[in-house]
Amino acid sequence: MIRNLFAGKVQLEGLSMNIFTEDDLDQIHCATLEVLERTGLFIGSKEAREILDGGGAVVDEKAKTVKFPPYLVEDSIRSAPSKVLLAGRNPKNDIVLESKRVGFTNFGEAVFVIDPYTGERRETTKKDVEESARLIDYLDQLDVYIKAAGSSDAPMETANLHNAEAWMPNTSKHGFMGGTNGYITKKIFEIAATIVGGKDKLRERPILSTVTCPISPLQLGEDTCEIIMESARAGIMVNVLSMAMAGGSSPVTLAGTLVIHNAEVLGGLVLNQLTSKGAPFMYGSSTTAMDLRFASAAVGCPECAMINAAVARWRVTISCRAGLQAGRLIPK
């Protein structure tokens, strides 16, 4: 039997979710622009307010709020790269973030650990940071590392330096970690530069990215601003990961929560791009619903899955946090 070629057969590769029309996304985008333009964000850092002022945003120095004209937001969306290489210390662990490619990482950061030897639940130590990094290094299914635990046995001010010292030698995968503040972030970059052989080498093949969280609703604290700016200057990707809680720090209706979330992340993006145009930026999400009966963040709830599927619909790049959260690189 002869079977000839198909003429332009339309094929779907893989299974994916069918959520939101272009119109739905436009509506969320427009609502976000309206919030950014009319309500604005609280920006905790003076330096950040100056950068935003210089870039065309409207600053109220007394209230420390900044309003963003829509063109500024959309320019920043366009200038952020839609494809980023996350280098591993070992190049075989390099991973490319683009379009709808899905990846996994562990969750971070936990403050307790169930001791694998005794079964006891206790506070995490620097040794746990080392050991968890080594375990994650072994697991093929996890594409990148994110600081799974913190060194609660180190002084709080320098804990992140201890964390950096602990995880970097223990995985050759790309790592994500918080930066405490601008000063510590710079020091972390120095540690990383020492490992890869200089600042230029680090810029060329950044083995780490930073993570920072806006405070919902609609606030970028001083440390968050500093981490965003320092990362942009060093050419290190920053993951601005909003953690709104529907019913607590954002509207109880999920579409409204998405708008709050989006406004916070895009505010961070504008600051990032005005500090250094073209700096790599990641759209993070750890938003969920609050269980109003227990006043706890329910991260196992279906809303969490939906919100993160929705966020990823802006275009999934890497699904951060095994099974729970999906982040993306840049909304386009």
């Binding site: 939101f20 509506q27 405070i215 609703p217 509207p251 209706t253 579409a255």
Partner: peptide, 26 residues
Amino acid sequence: VGGIDVTHEEIALNVLKEVGPGGEFL
């Protein structure tokens, strides 16, 4: 599977603006 409904009512822009930066919705 119920998904997120995207309408003006659900986005609740006026609520969002009323609460503003640093407020609470609880």
